[in-house]
Write a protein that binds this DNA or RNA. Sequence first.
DNA 1: GCCAACGTTGGC
DNA 2: GCCAACGTTGGC
Length: 159
Amino acid sequence: METMAKRYWLMKSEPDVYSIDDLECNGSTPWEGVRNYQARNFMRDEMKVGDGVLFYHSNTKPPGVVGVGKVSRAGYPDGFAFDKKSKYFDPKSDPEEPRWIMVDVAYVSTLGRCVSLDEMKEVPGLSEMLVIRKGMRLSVQPVQKNEFQLVKKLGNTKA
DNA sequence: GCCAACGTTGGC
DNA sequence: GCCAACGTTGGC
């Protein structure tokens, strides 16, 4: 059986809601609450166990990549969509045919420093990254292997 | 806290 | 199937 090449992703989280420190503390977490179809499709169809994840803090100063994770469980139904008490409850998601999907993400490392959005915009090797595009608000997005490695390297090198 | 850029919803 | 209204995201 042919093994699928490892892929790389960037996943956004508001640190007030769930930070890289929370992930370190928990070891891994279900990535619940994604309610965007494009992001859902990535989690459902393309993310595999072992894929690399850039953990991005949004809605903070400065926004940027702060750590590394990996996919520890491939797509499965987001049960929070069925929980009336959850903020992620979606009455339109039928348990027989779940509308929303999540993956589990495990902690790998915290970068020595935040690689900010501003910095990513300036580094030539990262000019194709989706996250730096104006108006891009997808919370789960693919990144290239070289981008993943470069961000990681920058985050562990002095500014 | 503002608001531009998006995505979704629902009336028609 | 159009599109106005509405809700959300997320940088600033």
